[in-house]
């Protein structure tokens, strides 16, 4: 995990590469070219870009209109605004209408760190999952983000893709393959399974390494697709483990943890601990500091797992 890259840059670069061949691809943004890392697309293919200014509702509506005219429309902008300000447009103009719009929601979760809760999106999995007709995807590294971008271009279905802002370790290999709607078993252990999504997955992998040093062999699962959700994999994991710890950069309400619990409600019996952001506005700090404060980093995950194992006996 030595190489680092921001997933937003991986998506932007991949999309530009594909767009050189696929004339149906267009990009819409709301004064977020820099933060989305999409300047290259604007420079090279300006005739296929639409800048709407600071107007997220217009961005989504315009993208829907483009998509209904046979374009493959990509909207790039901050997750906090597209999962809130433009949410009704995502619900009606995109998901309900069934227009082929992909929302690339950048700087998600607490990526903006000290800028505060106006700029955080810790509710987006819950909100977007409750809308029929749109996939909800959180890539865990640049290579997976690249693969998912390629996958999205082939699909006519709307999607909400939440990525972060900062460079994160690359955890996959260039030859890694991903399937739509499927989770990935990253590490096979036995005492406990750590199930994570998005940009905390590498922390989960690091935590597994730290746990191994104290004699705990943890399974690690990456769940990039929050919708459709790989229920079969969760049930299979639950069949083989007595304890599951979920990790997500999201509210503990309505996110990965609750989705896992939902899968287990009628399935195998298993104790579950959810690590996420509690029901409060996060403390001020960088993304790394906020992670550490709420136990989302590798050390925090390690401690939570040990505590969970001890407590459960």
């Amino acid at each position: 995990m030595s190489q680092k890259m921001a997933t937003r840059h991986a998506i932007a670069e991949t999309l530009l590469k594909i767009a050189r061949e696929d004339a149906r691809i267009v990009v819409v943004t709301s004064d977020a070219r820099g933060s989305a890392g999409i300047e290259g697309f604007f420079r090279e293919l300006p005739e296929r870009t639409v800048e709407v200014g600071i107007a997220e509702q217009a961005a989504i509506g315009v993208a829907a209109g483009l998509a209904l005219s046979r374009k493959k429309a990509y909207v790039f902008g901050p997750a906090c605004f597209y999962s809130a300000r433009g949410f009704e447009q995502v619900k009606n103009d995109v998901a309900y209408t069934g227009s082929n719009v992909k929302v690339i929601a950048v700087s998600g979760g607490v990526s903006y760190g000290p800028l505060g809760s106006t700029h955080h999106s810790l509710h987006d999995i819950a909100a977007l999952r409750a809308i029929p007709g749109i996939d909800v995807i959180l890539p865990s590294d640049a290579l997976q983000a690249t693969a998912i971008t390629q996958m999205l271009v082939e699909s006519e279905k709307p999607a909400y893709v939440r990525v972060g802002r900062n460079p994160i370790p690359v955890i996959y290999e260039p030859q890694s393959r991903f399937e739509h709607g499927k989770g990935v078993l990253l590490r096979e252990g036995k005492e406990v399974a750590i199930i994570a999504t998005g940009e905390v997955v590498w922390h989960a992998l690091e935590a597994a390494q730290l746990l191994l040093e104290v004699g705990v062999n943890a399974t690690v699962v990456d769940m990039p697709f929050l919708k459709p959700f790989d229920q079969d994999l969760i049930v299979e994991i639950a069949n083989r483990h007595e304890r599951i710890v979920t990790v997500e950069e999201h509210s503990i309400y309505g996110g990965l943890g609750e989705v896992v619990l939902h899968c287990l409600a009628q399935g195998p019996s298993c104790s579950v601990k959810i690590i996420g952001i509690p029901d409060e506005y996060p403390i001020t700090g960088t993304q790394a500091q906020v992670y550490a404060h709420y136990g989302l980093d590798s050390r925090g995950i390690q401690n939570a797992v040990l505590d969970f194992l001890q407590r459960m006996g």
């Binding site: 267009v26 639409v50 509702q57 217009a58 989504i60 509506g61 315009v62 993208a63 829907a64 209109g65 483009l66 998509a67 209904l68 005219s69 046979r70 374009k71 429309a73 009704e88 447009q89 009606n92 103009d93």
Partner: peptide
């Protein structure tokens, strides 16, 4: 909602 969608169609 409609005007923005119409704008997208017109841009296309």
């Amino acid at each position: 909602h409609g005007l923005a969608v119409g704008v997208g169609m017109a841009i296309a």
